[in-house]
């Protein structure tokens, strides 16, 4: 029984190893796969992310110029970040809260000279 005694006494005197969670939070490590975000400004709607996505969480529509992510399906593996030819999908280390809404990125028509006619919008539906 006494094997644990030293450990218990040491613990009582030491500062706790836990933290008061919602109030005090640890910063995630820099490489943590927290959530992905898409910057639709540079998206060319090439569908590569859609094709490679293992759980089919991304749906890209070339006609409507939309990029839809279902965060509930997304497994945050980072495959889309790897395959994106324009590097517009980025991985962020912080976790996003669980959500049922889908994230839709819409981009308006191009005027042919690189300027957008309509402003880009991120909609959560």
């Amino acid at each position: 029984m006494l094997e644990m005694l030293g450990n218990v006494i040491k613990n009582t005197l030491a500062t706790p190893a836990t933290r008061r969670f919602p109030a005090v939070q640890r910063e995630p490590f820099p490489g943590t796969r927290g959530h992905i975000r898409m910057d639709s400004d540079c998206c060319i709607f090439c569908k590569r992310c859609e094709i490679h996505c293992p759980p089919d969480a991304i749906v890209v529509d070339r006609q409507d110029r939309t990029w839809i992510l279902d965060p509930n399906r997304c497994i945050v593996c980072g495959k889309c970040v790897e395959v994106c030819p324009k590097d517009c999908i980025t991985m962020f280390p912080h976790h996003r809260a669980v959500t049922r809404v889908r994230i839709r990125e819409i981009r308006g028509e191009d005027d042919g000279r690189g300027r957008r006619l309509e402003p880009m919008a991120t909609k959560e539906e």
């Binding site: 218990v8 613990n11 009582t12 030491a14 706790p16 190893a17 836990t18 933290r19 008061r20």
Partner: peptide, 11 residues
Amino acid sequence: KLTARMQNRVG
């Protein structure tokens, strides 16, 4: 609380 401290927790 004491039990938590003995276990190195905040409690």
